[in-house]
Amino acid sequence: MHIVVCVKQVPDTKIIKINPKTNTLDRRSAPAILNPYDAHAVQEAVRMKRLIKNVYISVLSMGPPQANAIIKKSLEIGADEGYLISDRAFAGADTLATSYALSKALEKIASIRPIDMILCGKHAIDGDTGQVGPGIARRLDIPPVTNVIEVTELSEKDQTVVVKRKLSGGYQLLRIQMPCLLTVEKEINEIEYSPLPNMLKAARYEPVVWTVNDLQDVDRTQLGLKGSPTIVGKMFTPPKHEGGKRLEGSADEQVKDLITCLLEEKKELFYVK
């Protein structure tokens, strides 16, 4: 069985801080990381490999050459192979153009080794759209299941997988015919501490890098900025609310004031009986 995980390099938002006063991105020495949801997706593939053996795990990323690093990270978690598609032609892609480029790369990977399952993160933390996964599934015409919180059964023989899909208040239990595409939530697993042999393998590993020319039957008008129907029109700071009342005085006075305000000014909303 062959699982391909789509992994994206994102800025580490834990370290990059948006300075709320100056409205700027504080990028000081912020390293790029493997999108956390994608890390869980790779981990889930590793878990399945442990379950039914005979699983081969590839990861695929579209990004600049530095995205190399997150492919290595995926190998540390337990992937066997990594592909990076990197080309100026892909730059500036929105989700539609991204899913197009990735689906073309997936077709090529499938020609090397047929794919049974594709995993994606629920969303990427830099833009959090969550649109790329379902987009890829559509393009490859395979069934997608988003927001997966558990893979409960995996049958290589029947080519089916049973998953729990998170809903607003509860979950669906679904049986899906493979090949299929799943996007995973964080609660699907815990990332394990990688064994040393994986670390050594990852440190040595050089991913397969493809440019546009390495992919077949690509319609270049669907790539990158050109292939992206959405554009950013304008950026603006949200209209400032006037802000309410500042409570003055010592801590004790402020607290007292607050409670008085709540109980008197807002008694239609908040009262003690």
């Binding site: 929105d94 989700t95 539609l96 959090d128 969550g130 649109q131 379902p134 599934a137 129907p229 959405t230």
Partner: peptide
């Protein structure tokens, strides 16, 4: 979100998230 993503792909149109 799931539905809109799939539909946008088929209609080859833009989709703004959230």
């Amino acid at each position: 979100k799931d539905l809109a993503s799939a539909v946008a792909t088929d209609l080859s149109t833009g989709l703004t998230a959230d």
